[in-house]
């Protein structure tokens, strides 16, 4: 049972909360407490805007356990507007093909379920940004 692990990850998972370095303003996601840029302590929480663009992507047709029901699906590396790269599933693609540079925004979606009787796991994915 990994209930406690899910709970500790909630903040980071539901709302893209990372850290900001108080010394050089570098934004960290996922949070790792040490600034990769200047090597100092970086523990101040920072909530990302959720806006970004597709940096790279691939389509998954052989899914790992727990994800079988959603094949085929697209996984992307998304560059957040604040800088960090995040790996996440893309969703709500509709009929439009994904391209490098496609503007995307974070949404909280169902990631998987631990079987029919286990927990439902929610977390961030990215969808094509709504046209302004």
């Amino acid at each position: 049972m990994e209930v406690s692990r899910h709970w500790r990850l909630n903040k980071q998972r539901y709302s893209l909360v990372g850290e900001v370095c108080p010394h050089c303003e570098h934004k960290l996601f996922p949070p790792r407490d040490i600034c990769p840029d200047c090597g100092e302590d970086a523990r101040d929480l920072f909530e990302f805007s959720g806006k970004g663009s597709v940096y790279s992507f691939t389509t998954v047709s052989q899914a790992p356990a727990g994800f079988e029901e959603s094949v085929p699906y697209t996984v992307a590396i998304v560059q957040l507007d604040e800088g960090p790269l995040v790996t996440a599933q893309l969703t709500d693609l509709g009929d439009k093909p994904v391209e490098i540079g496609t503007p995307v925004e974070m949404v909280t979606r169902k990631l998987r379920s631990d079987g029919d009787q286990g927990m439902l796991i929610y977390g961030y994915k990215f969808r094509p940004a709504f046209a302004a």
Partner: peptide, 13 residues
Amino acid sequence: AGLDEDVITMSIE
């Protein structure tokens, strides 16, 4: 709703 949506995800948005 899509495959990864339910009342929880829709309520959050």
